[in-house]
Amino acid sequence: MSLAVDVFTVDEHDELNVLDVPEGQSDLAGFESWRTAVWGSDAVRTLGTRFFPVLADGDLKVAPHQVGDFLRECALVRSSIELVAPSTDPAKSHAEYVRQISQRLKNIEEAARRAQSVSGGVIIW
């Protein structure tokens, strides 16, 4: 299983509407195991993050008014990506983890920017 990142809007009845992923974009946010191994890891928590660690226990829903803060948290994680990437897995090199996490983080950042453009939110599930 994989985590997906999507943009949502809320209609006049407070119903959540998940938008289609635009052509040329990806909704991949990482492997299911990344809930704890990456996004909810101690390394990410040590950075002072508040959004990503939620994934360790469930899905993350970033409300429209929180997307700016979420993008700042994404930038914080990106600035420390070498520390965030696991280095204890013998099946994959640290450099490969850095590359994969960087790509999935890019997908998350792009979704957050799309959300801002439509006054929407972000969900990772």
Rank of each mutant, 00 (worst) to 15 (best):
M1T: 05
S2T: 07
L3I: 03
V5W: 03
D6M: 12
V7P: 00
V7K: 04
T9K: 12
T9Y: 05
V10F: 01
D11G: 01
D11I: 01
E15R: 09
E15N: 08
E15A: 09
L16A: 10
N17F: 08
V21L: 10
V21G: 06
V21S: 07
P22I: 13
P22Q: 12
E23R: 15
E23Y: 12
G24S: 13
Q25P: 02
S26V: 15
L28M: 08
A29H: 12
A29E: 08
G30Q: 05
F31M: 01
F31W: 02
E32I: 15
E32Q: 10
W34T: 01
A37G: 00
V38D: 00
W39Q: 07
S41D: 01
V44F: 10
R45C: 05
G48Y: 02
F52K: 14
V54S: 05
V54F: 14
L55C: 04
D57S: 15
D57E: 15
D59Q: 13
L60M: 15
K61Q: 13
K61W: 14
V62R: 09
A63S: 13
P64R: 10
H65V: 03
H65E: 06
Q66A: 15
Q66F: 12
D69M: 12
D69F: 15
F70C: 07
L71T: 09
L71Q: 12
L71P: 07
R72L: 14
R72Q: 14
E73R: 10
C74F: 11
C74Y: 12
A75F: 11
A75V: 11
L76G: 02
L76N: 04
L76C: 11
S79F: 08
S79H: 13
S80Q: 13
S80D: 09
I81V: 14
E82M: 11
E82W: 15
P86L: 04
T88K: 04
D89W: 04
D89Q: 01
K92H: 00
A95Y: 03
E96R: 02
Y97W: 13
V98F: 04
V98Y: 05
V98T: 00
R99Y: 04
I101Y: 01
S102A: 08
S102G: 07
S102H: 10
S102F: 10
Q103R: 08
Q103P: 00
Q103E: 07
Q103T: 01
K106H: 11
K106M: 08
E109N: 09
E110V: 06
E110D: 11
A111I: 04
A112H: 07
A112W: 07
R113C: 00
R114F: 08
S117N: 06
S119C: 05
G121S: 06
V122S: 02
I123L: 06
W125K: 10
